[in-house]
Simulated assay, not measured.
Amino acid sequence: MAHDFLDLPGGRRIAYALREGGSPTVVFLGGFRSDMTGTKASFLDGWASGAGLGFLRFDYTGHGASSGRFEDGAIGDWVQDAAETIGALTRGPLILVGSSMGGWIALRLVALLGERVAGLIGIAAAPDFTEDSMWAEMDEPTRARLITEGQVEVPSDYEAPYPITRRLIEDGRENLVLRTPLRLPFPVRLLHGTADTDVEQAVALRLLDHAEGPDIRLTLVKDADHRFSSEATLALLASTLAEVVSDAADRT
């Protein structure tokens, strides 16, 4: 797919694709080690085009076509990438659509973007996963090695083992969203598959219980996996986004 580049402070070069359109602008926030060319991002780009809405997708530093090495990055860096890219390329109300780690980043952006956020969709959202999944599941020898050596490799169901750094874990603790009040004063829809082996249903239920807001709903989809990219789940995603756009418009 064709993309452009945005130069940000610190030598960061962010690859992005922006479709101009009406308001609100839909912003897709990808997952851990993913990029903006995935099935969900491409599908939503097409949906937004048909709906006449603006659509922004991009790669965090160390991901996809953007600059930097993955192992040098952390949650706070990717939140900053997102906030600065959105700030530079968009105006007006936003609907944030976060997939997996992107759901965590979307929740962090709420505090940074303020009233610009008109709605939020989490697809297998994974808030606080560096602490509650990665760190929690490490045995003591692995934790000790991570602290002393600064990095360990973990297996993946999708690719070769990848590095987890001490900085990723420590920075993650500075960005946790489930330990302090989380006010979401706009339409929020959480979508989660019952066959997701990467992010447990308990995470979605904890987020639903913890977040505060007038219009927050969780939909569990039987047998859907973490990718959430089947024809049926994409159709659900489209109808959910249409609902959030409509509800957000009613509130303005």
Rank of each mutant, 00 (worst) to 15 (best):
A124R: 08
D132H: 12
V79W: 06
D81Y: 00
L107T: 04
L96T: 01
P155A: 01
G68M: 11
A82M: 10
E153T: 15
R116F: 14
Q151K: 15
P155Y: 02
I169F: 07
F55D: 01
I123Q: 12
E159P: 11
V97Y: 02
L176H: 05
V79D: 10
A124H: 08
D45V: 10
E131W: 13
W104T: 01
A125K: 05
V117A: 06
A41T: 02
G98F: 10
P161I: 01
A83R: 15
F70Q: 03
T61E: 11
A48G: 04
A74S: 13
T85H: 09
D139R: 05
S99W: 08
G122Q: 05
G114N: 05
G62W: 02
E115G: 06
Y162F: 14
I147N: 13
G150K: 08
P163H: 00
A124V: 11
G38F: 00
L120A: 02
A125L: 11
P141E: 04
A83W: 09
G122H: 06
G64W: 03
R166D: 11
I164N: 11
V154K: 08
I169D: 01
S100C: 09
V177W: 11
F55S: 00
D35Q: 06
W104S: 00
S133E: 14
R108F: 07
H63L: 04
T39K: 14
T90D: 12
R166S: 08
G122V: 09
D128H: 11
L89D: 02
Y60K: 02
V110S: 13
L53A: 01
H63Q: 06
D132N: 13
L94N: 00
T37I: 12
A74V: 11
I147E: 15
S67T: 07
I105G: 08
I169Q: 00
L146M: 09
G150I: 07
G50H: 11
G172C: 05
G62V: 03
E131C: 09
D171N: 09
G103N: 12
V154M: 10
D45H: 12
D72W: 07
L89Q: 05
A51D: 06
G103V: 08
T165D: 03
A125Y: 07
I164W: 12
W104I: 03
P141L: 01
R173D: 07
A126C: 04
T85D: 10
G87P: 04
D72G: 06
I105L: 12
L56S: 00
T165R: 02
E159H: 15
G50W: 05
E174S: 14
G98A: 10
A83H: 13
D157G: 14
T142M: 10
P155Q: 04
V110C: 14
R166W: 05
T130I: 08
M101P: 09
G102E: 05
L146K: 06
S99L: 13
E115L: 04
L146E: 08
R167G: 11
A74Q: 08
L176F: 04
E159D: 15
P161S: 02
F58N: 02
G114L: 06
G122D: 02
D157R: 15
R166I: 08
A65N: 14
D128G: 09
R91Q: 15
F55V: 00
G122E: 09
D132G: 11
G103T: 07
Q80E: 15
E159I: 14
I147T: 14
A65C: 09
P161W: 02
E71T: 06
T90K: 08
L107D: 04
